[in-house]
C-alpha cells in the first residue's frame, strides 16, 4: 500500500458515495447513465469473485464489499426506486458494442486461461470503457449537473492515481501488470477531455455545458 493506492481507493469511494447521495437526496437520477452503472456493477462482480477464494486484509475485503454493494444499490435506485426520473431516451449508448469486444479481448489476451483469470481480465477491460455511456449521454444532452461532474472527476482521478501507484510499485517492488497498466491508461485518457472541461468551467463556478 502506498499513498497513490490509498488516495486512489478513497477517490473511487468518494465518487461512488457522491453519486449515491446525489440520487438519494434529489430523489432523481436525471442525467445519470443507468447503463454505465450496470457496467460498473458487472465490473465489480466479475473482479471480486476472489472474495470467495482469497483473503488479503480486512481493508481489502471491506472495500470490495462496499464497492459491490454500492454498485448494486445505485442500479436499484436508478431502475427501481427512482425509475420515473430515469432519462432512458438520452441513455442510448449500445452497450453490446462494449461488452462483446471486451469479452473477446479478455479471452484472447489474459495472463492465464482460467475462468477466474478471464473474468478478472474482462472486468479490467470493461472498467476502462464503462464510463462511455455516461460521457455519451452528456455529449447528447450537452450538459451535466455540477454534482455529476464532481462524481466524474473523482472517478477519473482514481484511475490516474492508480497509474502513479503502478509506477511506484514498479520502482519499489519490481512489480508491473501489463493488462492493468494498459487498460488503466486507456481509462484515464478517456477522461482527459472531461478533466479539461472540469478545470476550465466547473472549478470556475460555471455549469458544464457543451457548445451546440
Amino acid at each position: 500500500m502506498n499513498v497513490f493506492r490509498l488516495t486512489g481507493d478513497l477517490s473511487h469511494l468518494a465518487a461512488i458515495i457522491i453519486l449515491l447521495l446525489k440520487i438519494w437526496k434529489s430523489r432523481s437520477c436525471a442525467g445519470i447513465s443507468g447503463k454505465s452503472q450496470i457496467l460498473f456493477a458487472i465490473v465489480f462482480t466479475t473482479r471480486y469473485l476472489d472474495l470467495l477464494t482469497s483473503f488479503i486484509s480486512l481493508y481489502n475485503t471491506s472495500m470490495k464489499l462496499i464497492y459491490v454493494g454500492c454498485a448494486y444499490a445505485t442500479v436499484y435506485l436508478i431502475y427501481v426506486k427512482f425509475r420515473a426520473t430515469y432519462d432512458g431516451n438520452h441513455d442510448s449508448f449500445r452497450v453490446e458494442f462494449l461488452i462483446v469486444p471486451v469479452g473477446g479481448l479478455a479471452v484472447l489476451i489474459n495472463h492465464s486461461f482460467a475462468p477466474l483469470e478471464i473474468l478478472w481480465t474482462f472486468s479490467i477491460y470493461l472498467e476502462s470503457v464503462a464510463i462511455l455511456p455516461q460521457l455519451f449521454m452528456i455529449s447528447k444532452t450537452g450538459e451535466a449537473e455540477t454534482i455529476t461532474t464532481h462524481y466524474l472527476f473523482c472517478l477519473g482521478l482514481y484511475r490516474a492515481l492508480y497509474l502513479f501507484n503502478w509506477v511506484w510499485r514498479f520502482y519499489f517492488e519490481g512489480f508491473f501488470d501489463m493488462i492493468a497498466i494498459v487498460a488503466g491508461l486507456v481509462q484515464t485518457v478517456l477522461y482527459c477531455d472531461f478533466f479539461y472541461l472540469y478545470v476550465t468551467k466547473v472549478l470556475k463556478g460555471k455549469k458544464l455545458s457543451l457548445p451546440a
Partner: peptide, 10 residues
C-alpha cells in the same frame, strides 16, 4: 507475484 497482486488491488 502476479496472482497475488490481482487480489490485492481494487
Amino acid at each position: 507475484a502476479i496472482g497475488q497482486t490481482r487480489h490485492d488491488e481494487l
